[in-house]
Computed example of a mutant assay.
Amino acid sequence: MRFFLLLLPLLLNAQMLQVGDNVTPIKLISQHDKEYTLVKNGIWIIAWDKTTTKMLNQYFDEHKMPENLNIIVDTSQIPSGIFSFFVRPSMKNYKHSILLSFDEKYNLTLPFKEDMITLLYIEKTKVKKIIYIKNIEELEKTFK
């Protein structure tokens, strides 16, 4: 399944963002129904599955989230009924904003590595750096 996801950008003619690429503005809603437009300077931290989302939520439940950070969760693969009845209600318990990305084609343009969180450093609408985080220890070192 993950192999198919890696090939899907090629099949849909989408290219993953790379350092130096411009970021397309996108409007996302949080788990608290607040709308955000992403393009400004800062860090996008992207979780791709239940495990990486849980790691992010655990970390930011215990640590203050930097102002310039946006947590984005790929929700495009979750069936709508499961998302509406189970996933979203559990996300509402978190005080930090979790931006929900339902657009599968857009999500395929975001850099991805299996079982890792993606950090995109954005400056003046360009990707300046991409980092992949595999565990909470690496996440703690990144945000010290």
Rank of each mutant, 00 (worst) to 15 (best):
G42D: 03
Q31D: 08
T37M: 11
H32T: 12
N13Q: 14
T52S: 10
Q15G: 05
A47I: 09
L17V: 07
Q58V: 07
L7H: 12
D33Y: 12
K54T: 13
V23Q: 05
T51H: 09
P9G: 11
L38K: 02
I46K: 01
M16W: 05
S30Q: 07
Q58I: 06
E35L: 04
N57A: 03
A14L: 12
Q18P: 01
E35Y: 00
L28C: 06
Q31W: 04
P25Q: 14
A14C: 12
E35I: 02
D49P: 09
I43D: 08
T24W: 07
I45N: 04
N41W: 04
L10V: 14
N22F: 13
Q58P: 00
A47K: 08
E35S: 09
V23K: 06
M55C: 04
A14P: 02
V39D: 04
P25V: 13
W48C: 01
L11P: 02
Y59W: 07
I46W: 01
K34G: 01
L11G: 06
I46Y: 02
Y36I: 03
L56Y: 03
P9E: 10
V39M: 04
D33L: 13
G42H: 04
P25R: 13
G42P: 05
V19T: 12
D49S: 13
Q18H: 12
L28I: 11
L11Y: 09
I29K: 11
N22A: 09
Y59N: 00
H32D: 10
D49Y: 06
T24K: 14
I29T: 11
T53P: 01
P9L: 05
K34T: 13
I45E: 04
M16T: 15
V23S: 02
L10K: 15
I45C: 05
L7F: 15
N41I: 07
L7P: 02
Q58F: 06
V19Y: 07
N13C: 13
L10C: 14
Q31V: 08
D21F: 07
E35C: 01
Q15H: 11
N13A: 15
N22G: 05
V23M: 11
V23R: 04
D49H: 08
G20Y: 08
A47Q: 06
T51W: 00
I43Q: 10
K27E: 15
D21S: 08
N41Y: 06
L38G: 03
T37N: 10
V23N: 04
N22E: 14
L56I: 00
L11A: 14
I45K: 01
K34Q: 13
L11H: 01
N22L: 11
I45Y: 03
V39S: 10
Q18G: 12
T53Q: 10
A47H: 05
L56P: 00
G42T: 07
N57L: 10
K27S: 15
H32K: 10
T53H: 00
N13F: 15
K34N: 13
A14I: 12
K40I: 01
T37L: 11
Y36M: 08
K27I: 15
D21R: 05
L17D: 04
T53G: 00
A14Q: 14
V19M: 03
I43T: 03
I26H: 08
V19C: 07
L11V: 12
G42F: 04
I29E: 09
G20Q: 09
